[in-house]
Design a protein around this nucleic acid. Sequence first.
DNA 1: TTCACACCATGCGAAAACGCATGGCATGGA
DNA 2: TCCATGCCATGCGTTTTCGCATGGTGTGAA
Lengths: 306, 306
Amino acid sequence: MDVDWDDLKTVLALVRAGSLAAAGAALGVNYTTVARRVQRAEAAVGVPLFERLAGGYQATETGLLVAEHASEMEARENALLRRLQGRDQTLSGPLVITAPQLLIGPMIAPVLDRFSTLHPDVSVKIRATNDLLNLNRREADLAIRISRNPGDTLMGLRLCAQHGASFASPELAARIAADPQGRIDWIVYEFSPQVPKKALELYPNSRVRMVFDDMVAMLGAARAGLGVVRMPLFLGRTTPGLVQVPMLPPQPYIDIWVVAHPDVWRSAKVTAFRDLLVPQFRKMRHLFVSGTGSEETEQVHRETNA
Amino acid sequence: MDVDWDDLKTVLALVRAGSLAAAGAALGVNYTTVARRVQRAEAAVGVPLFERLAGGYQATETGLLVAEHASEMEARENALLRRLQGRDQTLSGPLVITAPQLLIGPMIAPVLDRFSTLHPDVSVKIRATNDLLNLNRREADLAIRISRNPGDTLMGLRLCAQHGASFASPELAARIAADPQGRIDWIVYEFSPQVPKKALELYPNSRVRMVFDDMVAMLGAARAGLGVVRMPLFLGRTTPGLVQVPMLPPQPYIDIWVVAHPDVWRSAKVTAFRDLLVPQFRKMRHLFVSGTGSEETEQVHRETNA
DNA sequence: TTCACACCATGCGAAAACGCATGGCATGGA
DNA sequence: TCCATGCCATGCGTTTTCGCATGGTGTGAA
């Protein structure tokens, strides 16, 4: 009784994907291959692992058991690949970086420019998303995150503290300045769907006009004059068509971190990128904070929260 | 960057075996296949995993790293296979049992006889060895062990307590009886290469004549009259050509346990075998102990010593 | 030195795995 | 009802992988 490891891998993919076609796409093989490998696996263990339904393959209890263990095997494989990557001291090959969409233009792009000039053999891939990609699964090598919790089991460096404030289109700003006691419309983010407390104290006539789930769209709405938006200072300052308004005085916002898995933290490509990234944020610190407070700009962070 | 899991498995086998041929034999494939898979793995990780030396393949540091993680993947595979086996409620297919060579004839053989009659579809394999096979790695499904420590992480049932005593050939026994003060030659086991303390007190002229590393050979030597041997009561009593001698009065010996991995403990075949094994030892208890002490004969044992 | 015996590299034909194309089947919307 | 869209099963030709056989090399014993 012995099972082909790739068949186990295929069972795992099929359990995750739910259909032959999707699993095949995930594995980069034809779906018939998935079907055949699953058949082999079932023959090997002597028990059906899936029910063939019209809507796709549904894992049996045994199939889930197999997938569970295969998933643990995959975790070990990922650990291995991270370790191998960590010892890689070459400045060539792929490097995957993830960062929030809106941070890339003003802050990351200049770094990317210099990096690809200095290290032309590195093929950089940017994954611009607010999703927290799983660095354990090697979905990215290095992440720039705006977060209170840069990531369990990850290693990180605080790039910058930042302040948030309120911004609006010049026309709206002028209208408000002309009638500060009038109604003030806010566009708020779904994760804090209220008018900021401080703003409500200063301008009791504030109200929520709309709730958005996407900051890019909020920027667009703000520029179109739909309302006042709370956002990080750097964003308001670097977005044309927005001016700061006094509804919300600058106040601490979420820090910016660069994080990576400890296994890959010291690899050549990740190190080289950090070596450009950190000075960039140090140089541009004025963009992020209000006033001249001399806060610390770097801090090593390590969590071992298993 | 993605690696074929079977290539990892092959790297592990090659690190363990040390040569293409040996690894191929272990995997059940031609050695050229091993060579090709290793080449693929090296191409995938971009680093050499082995040095090709005249005497075989020597793993590089990176190769060892790969093997280490592959070994952990293998451990998860074994866990899976055990779990699958544990849910197997059929009384057909393979069942591997290991027991000390000398216990098989007098005690296990009758059980095997009944078992294969009751369950003719089970193909039983006996691994008769004093080595402690690794039940985690599924080298056997069920083990009968004479041991103070039936096995970490295993589940067990104490089949029987037993006594040990001294035995010799009838001729030697007669000679000693005729001259109890004369020199008494012992054949001892390498793990306790001394004349038993109690025997030395009673017969100060005892001395070690030879040290053996194998109990079968010691039985042979004892029957040939080479000396007195300390052995379990059941062994002396069931071996023709030996008689008990008074040098060493019966005293506690190592217990006999039946153990299995918790994952497979309750599977149908293992349970069915235990159901015959336990009564057999209960019935034959008189063979193992001296006198009529009414000791407990069963005791569930569970260790979780990770 | 010479032979025997490990080991490994390479080339070729056989076998297995794979991708593609066709067809069947169920579901859901027009 | 009919069609469109997902699914999956099956058959066929191609690609890849594999096993075998040959040849080369270094080591140790006669």
